[in-house]
């Protein structure tokens, strides 16, 4: 008899038609093959969900889109004075003009090259130092202290010295970015590496792994989550250092373009530069996260 159960769950799903139960008598129906299943009530106790739930598509775009919408509305209603912050459409048309005469691409290319080179060298230096310092006591006592000191010195404070040593050309700019990038890579990779469970080290010993094999199969994969965390800091840090070196002394790059615009009071170009930095930062962070998800697919975490 389905009457009481159906009445109780009437708000959740439509009750099955009368007499339906009789037609199935004595027939074993596979649950997933039964077409009536979708119309059956689904009553179940549910526990409080504590994780963030299933991953949704385009979830990362919602926040930035809301910010842009706020900007559009504030400009359109006159709440935002264009002399303080240009309207979004002015920035878009400025972008169109700068792309048409080639200035934006040109400056973007040179900026990207600087950031890319600095990032590359910073990753290599940070990762190598982290492994050396993480795997040997001698390495740790030689490397860890100086890196912590470097960490305490702001990147900006080193620029005068770097200019004296290397002049104001590309070497100085890339080096400044490298110095900013290697620190988070080192710190997080080192922490990840030191966090590897001692039981895996014991396992590697009992299996007679060589030093190289231990490094390749246990240490590096085990330190990878830490490395990726460091990489996300590093990528953002590379763009930040880039702004600094391009605005202090430079004749090209997005930072230079913005600095020039400041001299002429062109808010629209300044805002465009900011928008470009923002987009670059967002895109590079998304790229790192995608890479991370692919490389760490063995992990089972809240991120899902």
């Amino acid at each position: 008899m389905t009457t009481t159960a159906a009445r109780r769950s009437a708000t959740i799903a439509a009750p099955r038609p009368k007499g339906d139960a009789g037609t199935h008598q004595g027939v074993v129906v596979e649950p997933h093959l039964d077409p009536a299943l979708t119309s059956r009530p689904d009553v179940r106790p549910t526990s409080r969900r504590l994780g963030p739930g299933k991953r949704r598509r385009f979830a990362g775009v919602v926040g930035p889109a809301a910010l842009i919408l706020l900007w559009v509305v504030a400009s359109a209603t006159g709440l935002l004075d264009p002399r303080i912050l240009s309207e979004p459409w002015t920035v878009v048309s400025t972008a169109g003009e700068l792309i048409a005469d080639g200035r934006l691409q040109e400056n973007l290319a040179i900026s990207a090259q600087r950031a890319g080179l600095g990032l590359f060298f910073g990753i290599v230096v940070g990762a190598v130092l982290a492994v050396l310092s993480g795997l040997s006591r001698v390495g740790e006592s030689l490397i860890d202290g100086p890196v912590q000191i470097k960490r305490a010195i702001p990147g900006l404070a080193l620029i005068p010295l770097l200019i004296l040593w290397f002049g104001i050309d590309e070497t100085m700019k890339v080096l400044t970015i490298t110095l900013g990038v290697f620190v988070p890579i080192y710190l997080q990779t080192h922490a990840g590496l030191r966090g590897i469970d001692l039981r895996y080290v014991e396992l590697a010993q009992s299996l007679g792994l060589s030093r190289a094999g231990f490094l390749r199969r246990v240490v590096l994969p085990g330190a990878l989550p830490g490395f990726f965390l460091g990489l996300r800091f590093a990528v953002t840090g590379a763009w930040v250092s880039l702004v600094v070196v391009e605005q202090i002394n430079s004749t090209s790059g997005i930072g230079y373009m913005m600095e020039l615009a400041r001299t002429y009071g062109q808010t629209n170009i300044i805002v465009l530069g900011l928008a470009v930095y923002g987009v670059l930062g967002l895109l590079s962070d998304a790229a790192v996260r995608l890479l991370e998800r692919k490389a760490l697919s063995w992990q089972r975490t809240l991120a899902g």
């Binding site: 039981r199 895996y200 396992l203 199969r217 246990v218 994969p221 085990g222 990878l224 760490l296 992990q299």
Partner: peptide, 9 residues
């Protein structure tokens, strides 16, 4: 006692 499999392999 634990299987001690490397989770990343």
């Amino acid at each position: 006692q634990d299987s001690r499999l490397l989770p990343w392999d």
